[in-house]
């Protein structure tokens, strides 16, 4: 399968970086893999004025992010690997959605009618960690990043696209055991792709 990995964490020694390595190792050589490390690429998450001006002009809006557009159109599977900060995606990944998932790429828009465009993507996996515990995230604030991936991103993909959302909640009190169990779960799911 053609797999696009999108990774967002600035520190090489972080648990998120370790999970990213687990993802790449578990994909192995059986797949055609493209790895986008947003921090290493120094991705600028800010949708600019110039981009916003031509946002709906599908002839030219893709130019500043053409490489990412090409990768999204190429992929059959997408694996997101990121931590949850302040109840949301890290700004650098949020900016990837703001800037790349635009009209003509992720969807076509005609008045109120919006049609999804990334039918090539049939499989989506998220690998993430939360500082807080599950019930505080879910009941308290509604788990925004989970909805953004499992409901919204998925909506742009193939109709029968399968989404797996893997999360280690409550990192603030995690143990070596809980982290290693989670890492093994990630490896299992990725190996089964």
């Amino acid at each position: 399968m053609r797999v696009l990995v999108i990774f967002a964490h600035p520190v090489e020694t972080s648990f998120a970086a370790a999970l990213h390595t687990t993802v790449l190792e578990s994909l192995g050589t059986r797949h055609d893999v493209r790895d986008v490390d947003l921090y290493a690429e120094d991705f600028d998450p800010r949708l600019t004025r110039a981009e916003r001006l031509v946002y709906h002009d599908t002839d030219v809006n893709q130019a500043p992010v053409a490489r990412y557009v090409e990768l999204l159109r190429w992929a059959e599977a997408v694996v997101f690997c990121f931590p949850v900060w302040c109840f949301g995606l890290p700004a650098i990944l949020k900016g990837f959605f703001d800037r790349v998932m635009m009209p003509g790429v992720a969807f076509d828009i005609d008045g109120a009618l919006v049609t999804p465009k990334l039918q090539n993507i049939r499989r989506v996996v998220a690998v993430t960690t939360y500082g807080r515990d599950l019930w505080r995230v879910k009941i308290g604030v509604g788990d925004l990043p989970k909805r953004q991936i499992t409901r919204y991103f998925r909506w742009f993909c193939a109709k029968d696209a399968k989404v797996t959302y893997l999360a280690h909640y409550h990192m603030n009190v995690s143990t070596p055991d809980s982290r290693s169990a989670y890492q093994q779960r990630v490896a299992r799911v990725i190996r089964a792709l």
Binding site: P45, R46, L47, W85, C86, G88, L89, P90, A91, I92, K94, G95, F97, D98, R99, M101, D133, L144, R147, Q148, Y152, H170, N172, V173
Partner: peptide, 29 residues
Amino acid sequence: WWYGMPAILKGYFDRVWVPGVAFHLQRHG
């Protein structure tokens, strides 16, 4: 945008609303 705040605003919270400023964490979660 995308059901959340624009990245530039999300980054303001990520970078500025840190422990000791916006909140204090307790040791045992």
